[in-house]
Simulated scan of single mutants.
Amino acid sequence: MVHGLLVRVVVKDPAFIDATFVPEFSRLYWHSNAAEKDTLTYELHRPEAADSATDAERDEASRTLVILERYTNAAALKDVHNHSEPFKGFGAWIGEMIGAGNIASVKVEHLEEIAVPKPAADSGEAEKAAADAPAEVVAATGGDPNGILVFAGARPGEAPLYMQHAEEVGQRVAALGRRLVYGGGTVGVMGAVASAADKAGGKVLGVIPAALAPREASGAPVGEVVVVDTMSKRKDIMFSNASWLVVCPGGIGTLDEFFEVLTLCQLNAYRCRVGLLNTENFFGPLLAMMRHLVAQKFLEAETVDALVVRNTPGELFEAMESANDLVAVGFAKNLKW
């Protein structure tokens, strides 16, 4: 039986939340999501005051945080999570903050799952859709396939313009009112994209494998983060949530993701618009290699020609607006998956 927990923390000063609490909570958050296999949910939320709320209620809401926890069973909480070093360290820090007056109160509420039976009869369509979709996709997406997926490196790279352009990409995604979908890291080029989108008021969905969280995530998470156990699940969720792909400078992982999208589109298993942000001619050698593949009859020219390649974020996003999706050509047009 799933065991749940709601922890309600009220601080004295709203500024304490982002300046101190969230950074301190970060290690426990990432450890719980990445290293505890029986932790189903470990999230930090801010309550939203109702439109009819009084000034006092709005003030309390601005000073309140809610930690939502779900475990496969009570033992996963008591015997594993509560005995972890990050939990012990955070618990000691909470005690210090209460003593110093920075935290006004902490209320813990245990939740018992109620088994809800299926309705006696229905059309079966919703049940079939839920069964066909990976659980992580259903939980994370909210049913929005129109995000903008960005592939980018977990390192800043050599040229300063890589990070500058990354920030502009995040800002432009937010300005379009579309959700940024990315690999969930908070460092390097990908982290710059996500942070900029978040600061600009955009929605952000990050998807990160548990094994990569310690390497690619540092500090507080950005937006909504889904932690998965495999790279393939990461890609499944990202692909299902986007109709545009923007590829920024990055390493082998970025190129792997880019070529998987090309492969799926080429085989009629996926379709989206694909743009390369060619900062400092980063993708010039790669494009030359792809043209070589065309010349040697290993690749259709239509696939390369469909790529939108521009040198600046402004030029790229303008061109993407009127671009065509990358689709299968030749025999692959008729493939059914």
Rank of each mutant, 00 (worst) to 15 (best):
residue 90 F to Y: 15
residue 316 L to V: 11
residue 170 G to D: 02
residue 312 T to D: 11
residue 123 S to M: 09
residue 174 A to E: 04
residue 315 E to I: 03
residue 89 G to Q: 15
residue 87 F to L: 03
residue 50 A to E: 14
residue 61 A to N: 08
residue 298 F to S: 12
residue 337 W to A: 09
residue 223 G to A: 08
residue 201 G to S: 11
residue 192 A to G: 03
residue 159 A to D: 14
residue 180 L to M: 01
residue 270 Y to W: 13
residue 20 T to A: 11
residue 175 A to C: 08
residue 279 T to G: 05
residue 325 D to W: 00
residue 41 T to M: 08
residue 298 F to D: 05
residue 152 A to D: 08
residue 55 D to E: 15
residue 123 S to Q: 12
residue 13 D to G: 05
residue 106 V to G: 07
residue 91 G to F: 07
residue 253 G to N: 01
residue 57 E to D: 07
residue 273 R to S: 07
residue 284 G to T: 15
residue 246 V to T: 06
residue 314 G to K: 13
residue 21 F to K: 13
residue 75 A to C: 03
residue 34 A to M: 09
residue 296 Q to T: 15
residue 36 E to G: 04
residue 16 F to E: 09
residue 138 V to W: 04
residue 107 K to I: 08
residue 151 F to Q: 09
residue 28 L to G: 10
residue 165 H to D: 14
residue 335 L to I: 14
residue 260 E to T: 10
residue 52 S to W: 11
residue 41 T to I: 12
residue 12 K to R: 15
residue 330 G to P: 10
residue 146 N to P: 00
residue 87 F to P: 02
residue 245 L to K: 04
residue 268 N to M: 06
residue 4 G to W: 06
residue 24 E to K: 15
residue 70 R to L: 06
residue 127 E to F: 00
residue 308 V to R: 05
residue 20 T to L: 05
residue 82 N to L: 12
residue 57 E to H: 04
residue 235 K to P: 00
residue 260 E to N: 06
residue 31 H to F: 12
residue 224 E to R: 15
residue 10 V to D: 09
residue 326 L to V: 14
residue 312 T to N: 04
residue 250 G to L: 05
residue 259 F to Q: 13
residue 109 E to H: 06
residue 323 A to E: 03
